[in-house]
Design a protein around this nucleic acid. Structure first.
Lengths: 149, 149
DNA sequence: GTACATGCAAATTGTTTGCAAGTAT
DNA sequence: ATACTTGCAAACAATTTGCATGTAC
């Protein structure tokens, strides 16, 4: 699943600017989930003149072309490299967002069971505890548990 | 599934003010999905002194108590009366948000297939075409379709 | 050469905060 | 009586806009 960002952008008539290339480099580093500000802070290191407005502009273009995906949480927009259907789990312990795979066909079947709407773009967002934090919590509860007599 | 809003609020230590009662009345009218501003505009008719800030305050309290649910779309927070898991479908034709039932157990199973995280609160948001608009589109495509010879 | 992108500053939108005055319990 | 709520204005955060300048094609 190696995405050709440049080709996708050109295909849609977008020009390839240094700023857009910098965003592509950022994406290739494989950050799971990021905000416009995350991208801005990183790119400013190499292109100090870039502005947040430009980053928003670029991310919108990338999302239009569907080489990235976006979703809203608590008033801020998160972007992600993964465009195939999956769940995003925001861990209430560590605060990170992690991907959870889900069977797209089966999920669509569940929806179709109850409605004959057209389901074009599905966003599945979950709050909970990620596997790592869950494991840590288990360890702590073991070590702090009072000894039974 | 008749919710006793007043009892739920009292239970959690919230006071029953005229403003909160007005929001309860609003909820009882059964609007599917609404923003803070929707509620504000409506309640201002009976309580002209109410402010948006108060409406936000109240809706947050109601969401804390889980007698309403909230989710974010394109930078605005939507609220809904339905707190049981379901999908929200935003129709790209009419712009409305409609509920789509989904089997909670089966959805959880799909998630658990791929991760042993704790899934506490699931938000399922879909963009697409609602059943009504889909039906209309079908009718139009029939009446405007060029005749084959 | 031209249409599109960038950088900048200012505007906008949605939401939250601080605080004095009011009110439910 | 007291702690919680309201109303108001101001603050905030995230995002968008307008426009002159710059640049990919």
């Amino acid at each position: 699943m190696v995405k050709d960002y440049v080709a996708m952008l050109k295909e849609a008539g977008y020009k390839i600017t240094p700023q857009r290339l910098a965003v592509i480099e950022y994406l290739k580093k494989g950050p799971g989930h990021f905000t416009a500000n995350d991208v801005y802070k990183e790119i400013k290191k190499t292109i100090p003149t870039i502005t947040l407005a430009t980053v928003y502009n670029i991310l919108k273009a990338f999302a239009d072309v569907r080489c990235i995906n976006s979703f809203d949480v608590d008033g801020t927009t998160w972007f992600e490299n993964e465009v195939e259907l999956h769940a995003n789990l925001m861990c209430k312990v560590c605060g990170n967002i992690v991907d959870v795979k889900i069977d797209k066909g089966k999920l669509l079947d569940l929806l179709k069971e109850n409605s004959d709407a057209d389901f074009e773009n599905i966003t599945l967002f979950v709050r909970g505890v990620c596997p790592e934090c869950k494991a840590k919590e288990r360890m702590e509860s073991v070590s702090t548990k009072p000894v039974m007599h």
